[in-house]
Design a protein around this nucleic acid. Structure first.
Lengths: 149, 149
DNA sequence: GCTTGATAGTTATGTATCATAACAATAATC
DNA sequence: GATTATTGTTATGATACATAACTATCAAGC
């Protein structure tokens, strides 16, 4: 009546579910990236924010939050940490918002982190030889939905 | 010298990165699934554990942890919650481990949750019309790496 | 002017997921 | 019988995310 289970390999009732596979694949890559970034003392999220500020000098916290799908409130500790490490500086803009820029240390950290992410990505793309990575990216972008904050 | 940024749309330096796209896609689907499951009072992780126990009656906590890539220690509160809600029962096996089974309430919760997840998946697969979903699944499985605990 | 509404940044707080390290009890092996 | 591996557990910390509420600023309208 009951499947014997235990000791025999388990049936995986989630293996066919897209959401589950995305979650597992995402956490595999996040763990790898986290490990690759430890020498630089930045988390994956901090690395991402560095990249955004590097590509958009003068942007605001809210800009970044919208782009990355992060809540405004959760940007505070991230920017505070990057500021405390001397990687990002805020210059008051019109009074209500601040323009964010990389410091010199932030620029060099940014370059190192970007190279690390390139290698990280290349490592995984190598595992996907024979698969259409452009198509994979396009499909993932269809799934991603804009956050409405 | 500096890109104007702010008020103009931001450049997205992460849009081409697989890891980033996976993270965003995963969190989009997780949020949607979480919403779909709220009527049943179970989280996505609890729903997944219900599915595994339903498919493998008599399995142990450690079995589930290995299958799902969750640490043994983190299974404790999950099983405790499912037990407290009367969905899962533990029967001592050989002394060191317990066999997990769904209760009657767990079975009916399991069925409801499975239907909800089917609809959830179908909703997203509909957005991917014209794309090869089997190929997407195969590619994601290549990325997922076994956890060594 | 002054009021209304939108936005930026912040504070406080709660929750979920995951990680590590250590421990007790049991089982398996030699 | 001693060693080793495994199961379940406790304790603890980090991270990412959510909500709600508050202040300060700006933009428009009357």
């Amino acid at each position: 009546m009951d499947t014997p289970a235990s000791s025999a390999p388990l049936a995986d009732p989630m293996a066919h579910r897209l959401g589950y596979l995305l979650r597992r694949a995402s956490s595999t890559m996040m763990a790898d990236l986290g490990g690759a970034l430890t020498p630089f003392g930045v988390s994956p999220v901090e690395a991402t924010v560095l990249a955004v500020i590097g590509a958009n000098p003068g942007c605001t916290q809210s800009d970044i939050a919208r782009l990355l799908g992060i809540k405004r409130a959760n940007m505070v500790p991230i920017i505070a940490r990057l500021g405390a490490e001397g990687l990002v500086e805020k210059t008051p803009m019109n009074g209500r918002s601040s323009a964010l820029r990389l410091t010199a240390a932030g620029e060099s950290s940014h370059r190192a982190v970007e190279e690390t992410m390139d290698r990280h990505e290349a490592r995984f793309e190598a595992m996907l030889a024979g698969h259409d990575i452009a198509e994979l990216r396009a499909t993932l972008m269809l799934i991603i939905q804009p956050q409405e904050d």
